[in-house]
Every structure is written in C-alpha cells, then in structure tokens.
C-alpha cells in the first residue's frame, strides 16, 4: 500500500465517522458510500499542491486539490503539516477557493476605457501592452529629467508613478522595481507606506 499520510487521514476519517454513528443505531451505509465516492474520486483525480495564504502575513499553508482532468481547483483546505498554522485557517483563508477560477466575478479579459467613454471595451494583450509601452515611451521621452535645477545629473522621470504590490511574489516584486527604476521612476510606492 502506498498511502501518503494525507490520503490515510482522508480514508480513515471517512470510515471512522461511519463507525461512530452506526454505533448509535444510525444506518450510515448510503451516506458513507456517497462520502467515500467523493473522497475516493478526489483521491483518484486530484493533484495536491501547497500554497501560502494570500491575505495577512502570518503565512498559513493551504493545500489546493486540482482536478487532473479539468485542471480546475476543486478544494482548498488548511495544511496540517505547516509549522505555522498546523491546518487551521481563518474565515478568509478558508474561503480561498472563492478567489480561484471558481468565482465567476474574476476578471478574465483585458479591458480598455477610452477617454470620456462610459464603458469598457475588450482588447487583446498584444494591443494593450503595446499601447501602454507607447505611452510610457512618449511620456518618458518628453519629460525625462537628465539634470536638475542645480545642473546635477539626476536621470529621472517624475510624470509617471507606480503603486503596488505587496500581493505579488518576491520573484515578481524584484523585476517590477527593476523595470520601474530602469524607466527612471521615482514615484515608486506600495502598501508598506499606508
């Protein structure tokens, strides 16, 4: 038998619950079969990965179960192996599932709002990033400050600003600041300031 600890917990939990109730004279047969079918289905088809909760900075670990056929996340739960949260989660962490593709409110399209327009238009990535790049260059080429009023070399740009993002991964934060500094930005701020 090649059970992992987690699989063992899931299976023994389902069987254990059934035995507990049947000793009270309740026939758990059908319910148990149904529960087992869900659990076994999850075991058969789910790939488990760990993640760290995206909300506060306690750093709770969460297990995501992803359906290997549909690539959809079908369950999220606290990770009992974490030394920090030992499986526990708060209300937000426990609702992580609703930040995923399972939430129909997620933004799925690139949107553009033209000047003075009252609606969004759907656009392609290529168009949007190309247009942003053009605007960055146009502003930068026009407003770049090579020397300040005292004649000192400062090589900066004061007409584009950036805020965010404490929600990104470290590996995204680093290139983000590198890119903004390479453009010459000095208005670089984020959540830590407020």
């Amino acid at each position: 038998m090649g059970f992992t600890r987690r699989e063992f917990l899931v299976i023994s939990g389902a069987v254990g619950a059934g035995i507990g109730l049947s000793s009270l004279g309740i026939d758990m047969g059908p319910a148990r079969a149904y529960a087992d079918s869900i659990k076994m289905d999850k075991l058969k088809t789910a790939k488990q990965t760990t993640t760290i909760c995206p909300y506060c900075a306690v750093g709770c670990s969460i297990i995501c179960s992803t359906d290997t056929k549909t690539n959809q996340i079908l369950n999220t739960e606290g990770d009992p192996d974490s030394v920090i949260n030992e499986g526990a989660l708060c209300a937000k962490g426990a609702a992580l599932y609703q930040t995923t593709a399972n939430n129909p409110n997620r933004l799925k399209k690139v949107l553009y709002r033209a000047p003075n327009s009252d609606k969004w238009q759907e656009k392609s990535w290529d168009w949007a990033l190309g247009e942003i790049a053009k605007r960055v260059k146009a502003v930068r080429d026009k407003d770049f400050i090579e020397k300040n009023a005292k004649g000192q070399v400062v090589n900066r740009l004061e007409t584009i600003a950036h805020v965010g993002s404490a929600a990104l991964d470290n590996e995204e934060c680093w290139p983000l600041q590198a890119m903004m500094r390479a453009l010459g930005l000095v208005w670089i701020e984020h959540q830590a300031r407020i």
Binding site: I52, C53, P54, Y55, C56, A57, G59, H162, G164, S165, A166, A167, L168, D169, N170, C173, W174, L176, Q177, I188, E189, H190, Q191, A192
Partner: peptide
Amino acid sequence: ESNVQGSTDAAL
C-alpha cells in the same frame, strides 16, 4: 499583506 515584507525588502 501576505508579501508586504517581501515587497518592502525588494524596495517597491
């Protein structure tokens, strides 16, 4: 925030 420490370390 989950990574306000890391994003501060990265100097955003």
